[in-house]
Design a protein around this nucleic acid. Structure first.
Lengths: 198, 198
DNA sequence: GTCTATAGGTAGATAGAC
DNA sequence: GTCTATCTACCTATAGAC
């Protein structure tokens, strides 16, 4: 047991966080099942056996990656929304934050959350679902407000689902070297969903 | 070697096709890596060793599943489009066919194509990409026509990508037992993308 | 905390009988 | 075509030294 008992997603344990970040990249690139504990050890300069001092199982690493991905995105979104001036600005923040989290240089973790769900044991799912629901609740709130302001169509529950699908899928085709920046992509995706004003 | 040399996606080899269909369901439910050749054998009443009479490797089965998913969806789409009366009808067919293929009782194969891409070897990817591009080319054509008719916004390349993402994501939340049928969902998704006529 | 060594299990694929 | 038997390889996780 180290200094503290609460292994939050924050700093405190540098080694642990280093491992989570390395795992995020490996899981995204190779998939969870194809990534061995030896791969994970190599990535941080440890022998495979040493990993099990920090995590009880390989799956615990996966869950930690996912939790990091969704919570850090949620935090960024909450912050961006708090700073936005109006409904339109809050709507734009949905796209801007989500895409930067997904496509930016910081996060492979969110992508793992999207594509490795099947590898999560039933026991670990509820905890992650709570985090995901919290994130989607923010989306719902902002979309409802935008619909009330006449910015988007009123079918906001389906809208939320289709938009999240659109954004998630962007990892499959977006190229960082392409002509479009992440922020530009966010703007154009926003434009597609806005109701044209007469 | 059996009767014919051309192992097309069509009938001809009943056993082979039976295996592909069973594999599609297992790969979708458990993931490709977690599905063992013993699982596959069980599903069709064969010992694991016997599979390798029909397929050289496990990956060959994965590729066959994906090829079936995308080609059969493409065929259905082409047919629906040929029968549609106008641009609006062809636009509706995109949603209707894709969702039925993805969520209907016939196909787990298309879902495997979407979620197991990382497990495909580099050698096998080009052949599948050709099939995927053929499908997306039809989409592009129909969307361009719809944009010209003023039905949807003119940013059709991005529109194609966002719509496909929206549709793909539906497998994550759509429940067959829910209040919404697949065809109703297709209609409401179409409504979200249509430009409101004054 | 990290190492070495390895237990214990299962994976994909092959060989040869039938 | 399918079976049985099995090879070889590699996996996650543990034990005990340092």
């Amino acid at each position: 047991m180290t200094a503290k008992d609460t292994p939050k997603t924050t700093e405190e344990n540098g080694r642990r966080m280093e491992l989570i970040r390395a795992a995020a990249i490996l899981f995204r690139d190779q998939g969870y099942e194809r990534t061995t504990v030896r791969d994970l050890g190599n990535a941080v300069g440890l022998q495979s056996g040493s990993l099990f001092y920090h995590f009880r199982t390989k799956e615990e690493i996966l869950v930690a990656v996912m939790a990091l991905g969704i919570t850090s995105t949620t935090e960024q979104l909450a912050q961006a929304i708090a700073q936005a001036a109006d409904a339109r600005g809050r709507l734009a923040a949905l796209f801007q934050v989500h895409l930067n989290s997904l496509l930016g240089d910081n996060q492979a973790a969110l992508e793992v959350m999207l594509y490795e769900w099947r590898s999560v044991s039933e026991a670990a799912k509820p905890g992650l679902i709570v985090l995901r629901d919290r994130y989607e609740a923010i989306w719902q709130q902002v979309l409802d407000e935008a619909a009330a302001a006449g910015l988007v169509k009123p079918d906001t529950r389906l809208l939320r689902r289709t938009l999240l699908g659109s954004l998630h899928w962007s990892v499959q085709w977006f190229k960082a070297e392409g002509e479009l920046s992440v922020d530009q992509l966010a703007q154009r995706m926003l434009a597609l969903v806005l109701i044209d004003q007469a």
